[in-house]
Simulated scan of single mutants.
Amino acid sequence: MPTNIITTDDLRDFKMELLDDIKNLLSQQSSGTIKKYLKSSEVMDLLQVSPGTLQNLRINGTLPYTKIGGIIFYDAEDIQHVMDKNRIHHKMDL
């Protein structure tokens, strides 16, 4: 089975893609085209994460959620807050 090596550049690219997705989410939200509450499948599509990753974000308390019956809902504002809180700023030398 081949092994994939993940470099810091790969992680940086992933972070930038994720931030772009969140920016798109915010622009959709501000234009009123996005719902206030999202289901798990919608959050997984939005953030491009697996069900296991989303579950880990719930379990470790990173991403707040509401469970009604068997359906889990996420507040779009909470998702944005988590992304803002975990933003990393790097100074680039030119």
Rank of each mutant, 00 (worst) to 15 (best):
L19K: 08
T7A: 14
R58M: 10
V49C: 06
N24D: 05
M92N: 06
N60R: 12
Q29F: 12
A76T: 06
I68G: 03
K36P: 03
K15L: 15
N56Y: 10
D21N: 14
H89M: 11
P2S: 15
R12L: 15
D9Q: 14
N24A: 12
K39L: 11
P64S: 07
T8I: 06
D13Y: 12
L19V: 11
L94E: 11
S31V: 02
T3W: 08
V82E: 04
K39M: 09
A76L: 02
T3K: 14
N24H: 12
L18C: 10
N4T: 13
I88Y: 04
H90W: 04
K85G: 04
V82L: 05
Y74A: 02
L63F: 07
M83L: 05
Y37D: 11
G61N: 05
R58N: 07
V43R: 03
K85F: 09
L19E: 14
K15Y: 15
R87L: 13
E17C: 12
K67T: 06
L94A: 05
E77P: 00
S41C: 05
Q80I: 06
E42Y: 07
K85H: 10
M44N: 10
A76Y: 01
Y74W: 01
I59G: 00
E17M: 15
N56A: 08
D84E: 07
H90T: 06
L54G: 10
G70D: 07
G70Y: 02
Q48P: 00
S31H: 07
I88P: 01
M83E: 02
H81C: 06
I59H: 02
P2A: 15
A76S: 09
G61D: 04
S41I: 08
T66V: 06
D93P: 00
Y37W: 08
N4Y: 12
M1Y: 13
I6Q: 08
L47V: 01
F14M: 13
D78E: 06
I72W: 01
G52F: 07
D9P: 00
T33H: 10
D10C: 13
I88V: 13
V43K: 07
G32R: 03
L46G: 01
I6R: 14
K39N: 10
I6P: 09
R87N: 04
T33N: 12
Y65K: 02
S27C: 07
Q80N: 03
I22W: 10
D78F: 00
D93T: 09
Y65I: 00
D9E: 15
Q80L: 07
I6E: 14
L18A: 11
T3F: 10
D9A: 15
L19A: 14
I5K: 12
G69A: 09
V49I: 13
A76K: 01
D84V: 09
Q80R: 02
D21V: 03
H90A: 09
S50A: 07
D9N: 15
R87F: 11
T53E: 10
E77K: 03
K15F: 14
R58Y: 07
R58I: 05
N56L: 05
D9M: 15
F73H: 05
Y65R: 00
R87D: 03
D9Y: 13
E17L: 14
L94V: 12
Y37A: 06
S50F: 04
P51C: 05
P64V: 04
N60C: 05
P64F: 02
